[in-house]
């Protein structure tokens, strides 16, 4: 693209939500920087602009800390996609999604799509552990389903790890199964008053990822970006920006408008 992407207004908004320490920033960092690094707790929210084809996608990485909870709905305003992130080794992080974060999405678009993402899969899944930042290792959903024969964990605190055969490193007990995530996805749809048959299927919208090894990370973001494209096109046809941008245009006056259209 010859254009400077920075000068472009974002076409669509994607928001990462989830409890503290589930790896939201790491996921985004893995996707944008292609590497895993130790991050420190995010303050407030961080805004990133990603070029996807001809489109500009803004991604909000939010703080999972309770301290910043009040800002959540602001970050979600007009979102086209929300990535609800939990930690596969922490049941409570899935519970928090429903208790604390789901209500924040009330301000998102009416056609907003939701993804439920279990991060840190490398801690429980040998397959995710081996994956090294490449899409080639990606398995399709059904194949991965076979691995998940462990009993469902129902209590908030886990029983001692059942010492699964580990290939390398430590394998932690998996507290949240793919089925749990899919069940949550169903409840999200009900909360939003959406019919399951009209919405994207749960097995397509529930991911297990590892920001550490890169497992499934690209698939997650790219699937979502492809899915929000119709939303961008619709918006372009309507030639009308989101309410937030509208507000800014009125306030900014003619000078700012001229600037944004000049390139």
């Amino acid at each position: 693209m010859p254009e400077v992407s920075k000068m472009k207004k974002p076409d669509v908004k994607v928001v990462l939500l989830g409890d503290m320490n589930v790896g939201k920033t790491s996921l985004l960092h893995r996707y944008t920087e292609r590497k895993f690094k130790d991050t420190i707790s995010t303050v407030g929210g961080a805004f990133f602009l990603k070029q996807w084809g001809n489109y500009h996608i803004s991604i909000w990485d939010t703080a999972g800390r309770e301290q910043f909870h009040g800002l959540g709905s602001m970050y979600c305003r007009g979102a086209a996609a929300v990535i609800l992130t939990y930690d596969v080794t922490n049941w409570q992080s899935l519970v928090e999604l429903e208790e604390r974060f789901l209500s924040l999405t009330d301000t998102s678009n009416h056609d907003c799509i939701y993804a439920v993402v279990g991060n840190k899969a490398d801690l429980t899944d040998p397959k995710a552990q081996m994956s090294q930042d490449t899409d080639a290792v990606l398995e399709d959903q059904t194949e991965r389903e076979e691995d998940r024969t462990e009993p469902q964990v129902l209590s908030a605190w886990p029983t001692p790890p059942a010492s699964p055969a580990s290939l390398s490193g430590m394998i932690l007990h998996k507290q949240v199964t793919h089925e749990d995530a899919m069940a949550l996805y169903g409840r999200i749809l009900r909360y939003k008053g959406l019919e399951e048959k009209d919405s994207l299927p749960a097995d397509k919208m529930c991911f297990e990822t590892s920001a550490k090894t890169g497992y499934n990370v690209d698939t997650l973001f790219e699937t979502l970006f492809d899915l929000v494209l119709p939303s961008i096109l619709r918006k372009r046809n309507e030639n009308k920006a989101s309410p937030t941008v509208d507000l800014e245009d009125c306030r900014g006056g003619s000078g700012k408008r001229a600037r944004s259209t000049c390139c």
Partner: peptide, 30 residues
């Protein structure tokens, strides 16, 4: 705050912050 947050190095941050000596009870947005 800026020094302690290496996460700031990518992207743009928007966060509430209070300046205690300016007004200990209110937030600015940084």
């Amino acid at each position: 705050l800026i020094g302690a947050s290496s996460a700031f190095q990518a992207g743009e941050i928007w966060t509430p912050i209070c300046l205690p000596l300016f007004n200990p009870d209110c937030y600015f947005y940084a």
